[in-house]
Simulated scan of single mutants.
Amino acid sequence: MATARNVTSMNGAEKAAVFMLALGEEQCAKLFEMMHEDEIKEISFAMTQLGNVSAETVEKLCSDFSSSLGSTGMLIGSYDSTERLLMKSLSRERASQIMEEIRGPAGRTMWDKLGNVNEAVLANYLKNEYPQTVAVVLSKVRSDHAARVLGLLPDGFAMEVIMRMLRMESVQRDVLDSVEKTLRSEFMSNLARSTRRDSHELVADIFNNLDRQVEGRFMSALEERSRDTAERVKSLMFTFDDLGRLPPEAIGKLMRVVEKSKLPTALKGASELIRNLFLSTLSERAGKLLRDEIASLGPIRLRDVDEAQGAIVALAKELAQSGEIEISDSKDEQMVL
């Protein structure tokens, strides 16, 4: 029997098991719903090994728990504080791996995390794996996400995966654990490292969302401090003028989803090159109507132009992220009309 004298020798799972048993079945079930499968197994196993637990032991555990909370004061949870704690109890390599997983796509389980990975990124990784492995992975993520990933795989490979999924029965636990371990160590850790944003890219994104006059002021100040840094930030910025690098079919897709009330305002302040590029995707009649609408606007505030152009640029980035259009990395590529 566990007694008050050996409470200090109990591990975390055993203490958690005592607490949950003391709370009763209803509260215990609610807590289990919020736990990972591995945590449930560990605590459940501890419960089966407890035997009789005296009231004195339960009281001592509750008292210790209450005292530790009362003496803690204000708590601050952050990436840094969590990493420091992990470094004290785990190897540096294991602690770094855990932190990379935390910083990666959101989700409690590995399969939740995969469901938040961009389908193009996931498909690019899976196309180099065995069809059976891909079948297991796609059977564990949401159906809509699996469908998008499958559509991006090479046709022959995708059909092989589909056939494996059709023949697949229940996946053995050791196979699932092996696939999950590989994904965690090879894919998710690399993904977490690759998704850490470059500081210049971050500043470029912020500058993209500034009012044009404010952006110009900050860029001039940055050039005074470091011309090289300013040039690098400029090269990473995507502006309304950069839409001139898009092919007509991409502009056509953009035109179909853009808010029609913003287009005349955006083109009113655009260069002739950009304006003609947008107009070239329209029929002669629709193009004339848009030109007339632009002309009828009269004088317009620069702030309104910036807002309209910014909304269209943001939409172009969304289409690029979803794979519907492609934005060239080169600033030198221009469309010739």
Rank of each mutant, 00 (worst) to 15 (best):
L246Y: 03
M219Q: 07
A230W: 01
L263E: 03
A250Y: 10
E215P: 00
R227V: 07
D242C: 12
V233P: 08
K253H: 06
S261T: 13
F238I: 02
R245A: 02
K262G: 10
T239L: 09
L263P: 08
P264G: 03
G216I: 02
E231M: 08
E259V: 13
M255P: 02
S235H: 04
E249D: 15
E231Y: 06
L243V: 04
I251S: 00
R212K: 13
L222P: 09
L246D: 11
P247A: 14
K234N: 09
T229P: 09
M219V: 11
D228C: 12
G216Q: 06
Q213T: 14
M219Y: 04
G244S: 04
E249C: 10
F238P: 01
P247Q: 15
E259G: 11
L254I: 10
L254E: 10
S261Q: 13
K234Y: 12
R217L: 14
E259N: 15
R245H: 00
R217C: 12
F218W: 02
P248G: 09
S261C: 04
V214Y: 13
R225M: 15
L243Q: 08
R232Y: 01
R245Y: 00
L246H: 04
D242N: 15
L222Y: 07
P264T: 05
T239V: 04
R212D: 14
K262I: 13
M219H: 05
V257C: 04
E223I: 09
M219R: 01
G244D: 00
S235I: 00
Q213S: 14
L222K: 00
P248Q: 10
R217V: 13
I251T: 03
M255Q: 05
S261I: 07
R217M: 14
F218V: 12
F238V: 04
E215R: 11
R256T: 09
K234M: 12
S235C: 02
A250H: 11
